[in-house]
Design a binder for these strands. Structure first.
Lengths: 157, 157
DNA sequence: AACTATGTTGTAACCATTATAAATAAATAA
DNA sequence: TTATTTATTTATAATGGTTACAACATAGTT
């Protein structure tokens, strides 16, 4: 995600307004690198502006996604869609214990390099996800229940 | 997913019974390579046994997942969790137009090779997903609305 | 046959998300 | 400024996938 000013410009370009609610949501999104769900953003929003509705957060994040300022993370479908606010490295490490999602820098061949193995397929994007145990959880003995771990528990991999 | 007999043995091992409903669901899962959702399995089930309930399909697929015979596909969160019945190559190509999900054979370094770049992280599994346009959709001019495309439409990537 | 454990079914509950419509705020035109 | 239009927010209801629950049915065992 780019700076708040850049995004504001992008909004105006589409005829959208930079309301206080949107500004706050965008600021929170820019700051948060944990790939938050809508609800997690919402909870941060109401700390500053308690009267903001969930719908506004949903709407704003959807608009950001349409503008390409935010991307849905598809690695995990537990407890709601997570949003990625960083446009560069799109590879992730997902901790099976605390269910945190971390950006990871792994060298992959470019998307165009698959044309050989995939005759006729046009590849425009790729995403690698690593699953495992993060150092924190290893040190703590694995069983720290992180966000969203309660609902369906640990999955079997 | 392994053969029905192998899975039946795996069931009995856990004290579970191979009922007609479960047998049918397992047969359908073994046959279907399209990474179906529960609802898609259910629709195939009722063709043969119309009285089977959705709950049974949910339960059985969940049990299969617990046994490790089936794996949730995390690439796309549209229209329900998709299940992967094949334990080997876990890389996928997702067509942004028809939203079909295809197994793909791409060489990746083993999970253990990431230990250098990820100090302290234990990687147990990895998954690469390629996003793009499949040959069918390219030939048809892109706009074939496939399964689930209606609800949220094409995402921006 | 009776007993016990397991499985199935229908229904209701749950949760994330989207649709809708009324109320509000901002931008523009007069 | 005021009126008018347009965009935005809000609360509430609807939707859709999934799970919980309780009654009923089945299979296995003594």
């Amino acid at each position: 995600m780019r700076s708040v000013e850049k995004i504001a410009a992008s909004l105006r370009e589409k005829g959208l307004k930079l309301t206080p609610q949107r500004r706050l949501i965008i600021e929170i999104l820019s700051r948060d690198r944990t790939h938050p769900t809508v609800d997690e953003v919402y909870r941060q929003v109401v700390v500053t502006m308690p009267e903001v509705s969930r719908t506004t957060v949903y709407n704003t994040i959807r608009e950001m996604a349409t503008l390409g300022e935010v991307v849905e993370v598809q690695d995990i479908s537990d407890g709601g869609i997570r949003y990625d606010t960083c446009a560069e490295s799109h590879n992730h490490f997902f901790c099976l214990s605390c269910r945190s999602l971390i950006d990871v820098d792994v060298d992959l061949p470019g998307a165009e390099s698959y044309s050989g193995a995939l005759e006729g397929y046009q590849v425009v994007k790729q995403q690698l996800t690593l699953y495992g145990i993060c150092p924190d959880c290893r040190d703590k003995g694995l069983s720290r229940p992180g966000r969203g771990a309660g609902k369906r528990g640990l999955k079997k991999f």
